[in-house]
């Protein structure tokens, strides 16, 4: 009997945690060798026109407080160890969003001597947002896709956000 009761409490707790996570994911941003373009667009999502905080998403500094790692750029050799360290410092469950063509495939830097070229080779990625750089709408759409997937449990297959983002979808989200 007591076991069942514990199970029930656990289940409620899990549901509660999931609810809280979906309503207020905290994100950390790491630049692993990007040209700055994607980083600026990520920053632009915080600003009044795009205002990602309306989804409860907060960009903050410490990996220990973060649920989502937003990563830009091809992974350079010296950023790799730091990226892995940041990733390992994040508490479970953690999710990774790869933003920009470089993080997807190395992009224009594919084949450079100091570049690994694919975020997926270093850490597991949950959402891919292509574009060079992706528009802020696309980045928001990517985050929202992750949140949608979270509602039905952790995504098993990586999601790729297509670009351009259909206007209609965003309207519905608001």
């Amino acid at each position: 009997m007591s076991e069942n009761k514990n199970n029930l409490v656990d289940q409620v707790l899990i549901k509660l945690k999931n609810w809280a996570r979906i309503n207020s994911p905290w994100a950390i941003h790491f630049n692993s060798g990007s040209c700055n373009g994607c980083d600026i667009e990520i920053l632009a999502t915080l600003t009044p026109r795009f205002d990602v905080e309306r989804f409860g998403i907060k960009l903050q500094g410490s990996p220990r407080h973060a649920d989502v790692l937003i990563c830009t750029g091809p992974v350079t050799l010296q950023a790799r160890d730091r990226l892995i360290r940041v990733y390992e410092q994040m508490p479970e469950p953690k999710f990774v969003i790869a933003v920009g063509s470089c993080a997807l495939s190395g992009g224009v830097f594919d084949g450079c001597y100091n570049v690994i070229g694919d975020l997926n080779k270093v850490i597991p990625v949950d959402v891919y947002v292509p574009g060079c750089p992706p528009r802020p709408e696309a980045i928001i759409y990517g985050v929202v896709q992750l949140l949608e997937a979270l509602k039905s449990g952790k995504p098993k297959e990586p999601i790729t956000v297509t670009e351009p983002v259909p206007e209609v979808v965003l309207e519905e989200e608001i």
Binding site: G33, G73, T76, C112, N114
Partner: peptide
């Protein structure tokens, strides 16, 4: 510095 060094100058040559 150097965390985002990608080697663009060398890549230009190819």
């Amino acid at each position: 510095l150097g965390f985002v060094h990608r080697g663009i100058e060398k890549a230009c040559e190819s």
